[in-house]
């Protein structure tokens, strides 16, 4: 409840600020808003796909944050997930897709998940073993993964029939997954994660670990194993998000795979109170903002980075509203006693 109020306040405050900025830039805010919504409706499939990708990323991040593991590199894990899925779809699967296309699709998704999981396992292990800050390592790996993605679609995997267009060859159409399947995957993932953090021993270990590594060690929690599990879940879901983009929406490896969704998901996880199911509520809003931002660019020449700026501002507003909430709560409790 407390989380919900803080999240709503933060969103409203950020929107208000956004309106003010638009107004300063001589863009009528309400018209812009209407345009954005219209675009979201017109491209509802894109919006839904974006929302699902953000859900997957946000769920993974909220699991990590619950264990006090600051995985801020979901973007990188998404990239390697996409690479792995595309690799399976383009170069491992035979042209005949024998024995069944869906098998190869599933394999691509699994490969993406594993790639993301291992991309995040490294930071988790070095954090467990040598207490290397995962904020730094996961972020550095974002840059590495983005360059790797770029290298592949510009270099060896570039589509020979693409007229020099930057991107890999498209995946065979029978490898595509429908949005329904992605939605099912996302929902199941979120529910499993929610059960994991709330109802299992591992979830309890995570909450002790996030509080203090010392207490965890004292209580006999295997810190390395716990961090490894958390890292693999978090990275795996991000990798799956990447694979889903390749097999579901983009259909190939292009620069549009990595547009900062991994960072947006950090805000989503925070606003959702680090609850995997809360993510499902918050993510669609940001998906609409991100898709709608394209309308701002087309109609009013406002660059799309507007939505990125709004994300950051929303996070700052959220911190402030959590603080205000705490103060009010304290005053309220003070009156009671």
């Amino acid at each position: 409840m407390k989380h919900l109020v803080a999240a709503v306040f933060a969103l409203l405050a950020a929107l208000l600020l956004g309106f003010v900025v638009l107004w300063i830039l001589h863009v009528p805010p309400l018209d812009a808003c209407k345009g954005m919504l219209a675009l979201c409706w017109a491209r509802k499939m894109d919006t839904a796909a974006k929302a699902l990708v953000l859900c997957l990323l946000g769920t993974g991040i909220s699991v990590a944050f619950r264990a006090g593991f600051w995985n801020v590199g979901a973007e990188g894990q998404l990239c390697v997930g996409a690479i792995a899925a595309a690799g399976i779809g383009l170069y491992v699967a035979p042209a005949s897709l024998w024995p069944a296309p869906w098998l190869w699709t599933a394999l691509a998704l699994v490969a993406g998940t594993l790639a993301g999981a291992f991309w995040c396992l490294g930071p988790a292990l070095v954090r467990a073993k040598w207490q290397v800050s995962e904020v730094v390592t996961t972020l550095m790996l974002v840059y590495v993964a983005k360059r790797l993605l770029e290298y592949l679609y510009l270099g060896p995997w570039r589509d020979p029939q693409g007229y020099g267009f930057p991107g890999s060859a498209p995946l065979s159409a029978s490898l595509h997954v429908s949005l329904v399947w992605i939605a099912i995957l996302t929902g199941v993932g979120a529910i499993i994660c929610a059960l994991l953090v709330k109802k299992t021993v591992i979830g309890f270990e995570m909450s002790v670990l996030s509080e203090s590594r010392d207490v965890a060690r004292y209580g006999g929690i295997h810190v390395g194993r716990c961090l490894a599990i958390v890292g693999m879940i978090s990275g795996g879901l991000a990798g799956l998000a990447g694979a889903v983009q390749v097999t579901g929406t983009a259909g190939r490896l292009i620069s549009g795979i990595s547009v900062g969704d991994g960072f947006t998901a950090i805000i989503i996880a925070c606003l959702a109170g680090r609850h995997p199911l809360g993510v499902l509520i918050v993510a669609p809003f940001w998906a609409m903002l991100k898709v709608g931002a394209e309308d701002l660019e087309v109609s009013y020449q406002i660059p799309q980075a507007f939505s990125t700026a709004l994300e950051g501002i929303c996070l700052l507003c959220w911190l402030t509203s959590v603080w205000i909430g705490r103060r009010w709560f304290r005053r309220f409790r003070g009156n009671l006693t």
Binding site: T200, V201, G203, S207, V208, E211, S212, Y218, G220
Partner: peptide, 28 residues
């Protein structure tokens, strides 16, 4: 000795939460 943000009962179970009497098959 204890994780401050956890409820009292969580900390009381800190030593034995893994045991199957408290968490059968890993479920709390």
């Amino acid at each position: 000795g204890a994780a401050g943000a956890l409820p009292v009962y969580g900390n009381l179970c800190l030593r034995r939460y893994r045991e199957s009497a408290l968490s059968p098959k890993g479920w709390i």
